[in-house]
Lab assay of single mutants.
Amino acid sequence: MQVTWGNVTVTFSNPEEAKKYAEKVARKLGGQVELHNGQFRIK
């Protein structure tokens, strides 16, 4: 499962870890987490 924002992509084998990481990054950037085609995207 991947977490992407800007031109950065981070890949996780565990979807739960990916979700936690995406939420943490979104909080830092003041963005929203979207699940899109099996990727968490931060907008």
Rank of each mutant, 00 (worst) to 15 (best):
N14L: 07
E34H: 06
T4S: 14
Q32V: 15
H36Q: 09
G31T: 06
A18F: 02
N37F: 05
K20N: 11
P15S: 12
G6T: 03
Q32C: 15
Q2F: 06
E34T: 09
R41F: 15
F40I: 13
Y21G: 00
Y21N: 01
G31R: 04
L29H: 07
K20V: 12
V8N: 09
E16H: 11
E17Y: 08
V33I: 11
L35N: 06
F12G: 00
K19R: 14
W5G: 02
Q39C: 10
A26S: 05
G6V: 03
V8R: 06
V25L: 13
Q2S: 14
T11P: 04
E17S: 11
F12C: 12
P15K: 10
F40E: 02
A26Y: 01
E16G: 08
H36L: 13
Y21F: 15
G30Q: 07
A26N: 02
G30R: 07
K43E: 08
F12I: 04
L35P: 03
F12W: 02
H36G: 05
L29D: 01
G31F: 07
E16R: 07
M1L: 12
E16K: 07
Q39I: 13
P15T: 12
E16Q: 09
G6W: 11
N14Q: 07
L29Q: 04
H36D: 11
K43L: 14
P15V: 14
F12R: 01
R41W: 14
E23W: 08
H36S: 10
V25G: 00
T9A: 04
T4V: 15
V3M: 02
K28F: 15
V10E: 04
H36K: 11
E17P: 02
Q39L: 05
A22H: 00
P15Q: 12
K19Y: 14
N37P: 03
L35R: 07
M1A: 10
N7C: 15
R41M: 13
V8K: 08
E23P: 00
A22V: 04
F12E: 00
V33R: 00
F40W: 14
K19M: 11
S13D: 13
R41I: 15
L29N: 04
T9W: 03
S13N: 12
F12A: 01
V33A: 05
N7D: 12
A18V: 01
V10T: 04
M1P: 07
K43T: 15
E34F: 09
G31N: 03
P15R: 09
A26V: 05
A26R: 03
T4R: 13
E34I: 13
K28E: 12
V25I: 14
M1W: 15
K24H: 13
E17A: 14
R27C: 15
T11E: 09
N37C: 13
Q39N: 12
A26L: 03
F12K: 02
I42M: 01
A18R: 00
T9G: 01
N7P: 09
Q32S: 14
R41K: 10
G31P: 01
V3I: 05
N37S: 05
Y21I: 03
V3F: 05
L35S: 07
A22K: 00
A18S: 02
S13R: 11
L29A: 05
V3N: 00
N14I: 06
N37H: 05
I42G: 01
V8Y: 12
T11W: 14
V10Q: 05
F12H: 01
G30Y: 05
N14K: 07
Q39V: 12
Q2L: 10
V8T: 11
P15F: 15
V8W: 10
Y21K: 02
N14T: 13
R41P: 02
R41Q: 13
N14P: 01
E23M: 09
T11C: 15
M1R: 09
L35Y: 14
K28Y: 14
E34Q: 08
I42S: 01
K19P: 00
V10M: 09
T4G: 04
V33S: 02
G6S: 06
K28T: 10
G30V: 03
L29I: 14
Q2Y: 07
G6N: 08
M1T: 15
N7V: 08
W5A: 04
R27W: 06
L29W: 09
N37L: 06
N14E: 08
K24G: 08
N37T: 03
F12N: 00
T4P: 01
A22Q: 00
T9H: 05
N14M: 05
Q32K: 13
G30L: 05
L29K: 03
I42N: 01
P15G: 09
V10I: 14
V3A: 01
F40Q: 02
H36N: 08
F12Q: 00
G6M: 06
